[in-house]
Simulated scan of single mutants.
Amino acid sequence: MDEVREKKQEIRNGISTFFNSLASDVLKANTRVIENRLFEFANFLESKIVMLYVNTENEVATDAIIKRAYEFNKIVVLPAFDTAKSKMKLMKVDNPDKDLINGPRGILEPNPAKCKPVPLDSIDIAIVPGIAMDEKGGRIGSGDGYYDRIIPDLPMTTRKVGLVFEGQLVPQVPMESHDKHVDIIITERRVIYKI
């Protein structure tokens, strides 16, 4: 178990080095390509209720994706984190400029005073963050397990889509029994179907 965690940390450190090596214009251009691929993706276009994420360090930036989703008449759902219980609650966000507050993880999240909870079974597509992924859909997140706990509770029909740069793809993610896979991965070069 410790060996797997150490390997995951090594991968996280390598991804951090990768992000630090990218020129900001390359990062922006590749992020835009991933965004455009997502907005051309049939499963995304057909969905009504979309679970997105606010990125942390070493994840594909989502601020433009979140704003653009409203132009496509999507109902945008973002996670609010309860760090004491290691859980997250999904909440509908009507206006990201007014409905988000700084959360316990140091990132923006839905303000519970303004946003309503959304049941997991209503999510049509879940865009899942990752620090690293492999072509089989294995993923490494922040290490807190929030998404590993929520993915199994999403409906079978809900597509779980990871967004990463090609440089975040690793040959094989070391998986533990509680780790969950994504169905599809979108990079700046391709769409990888694991399903």
Rank of each mutant, 00 (worst) to 15 (best):
S47I: 01
F19P: 03
V33H: 02
I34N: 04
S24M: 10
S47D: 01
I34Q: 05
A61Q: 14
L38E: 12
L38I: 14
N36T: 12
E46F: 06
I49G: 00
M51F: 13
N30G: 01
N43D: 15
D25S: 13
F19H: 07
E46Q: 14
K48A: 05
S47G: 11
E59I: 06
E40Y: 04
I15S: 05
A42C: 09
N73G: 10
F44Y: 15
T62L: 09
A23M: 06
E46P: 00
S24I: 11
F39L: 10
D25T: 13
R32L: 09
D63W: 05
M51Y: 09
N36D: 13
I15W: 08
F18Q: 02
I49W: 01
V50E: 00
E71Q: 09
T31L: 02
F44T: 06
T62W: 07
F44I: 09
F39D: 09
A61S: 14
A69G: 02
N20T: 07
V26N: 09
E59T: 08
T62C: 05
I15G: 07
R12H: 01
T56S: 14
E71G: 07
N13R: 12
T56P: 00
L45E: 13
L38A: 12
E59S: 08
E40C: 10
V54S: 11
I49E: 01
E40Q: 12
K74Q: 03
E71V: 04
L38V: 15
E57R: 15
F44D: 04
V33P: 01
S24E: 13
E57S: 15
S21N: 06
E46S: 15
S21L: 01
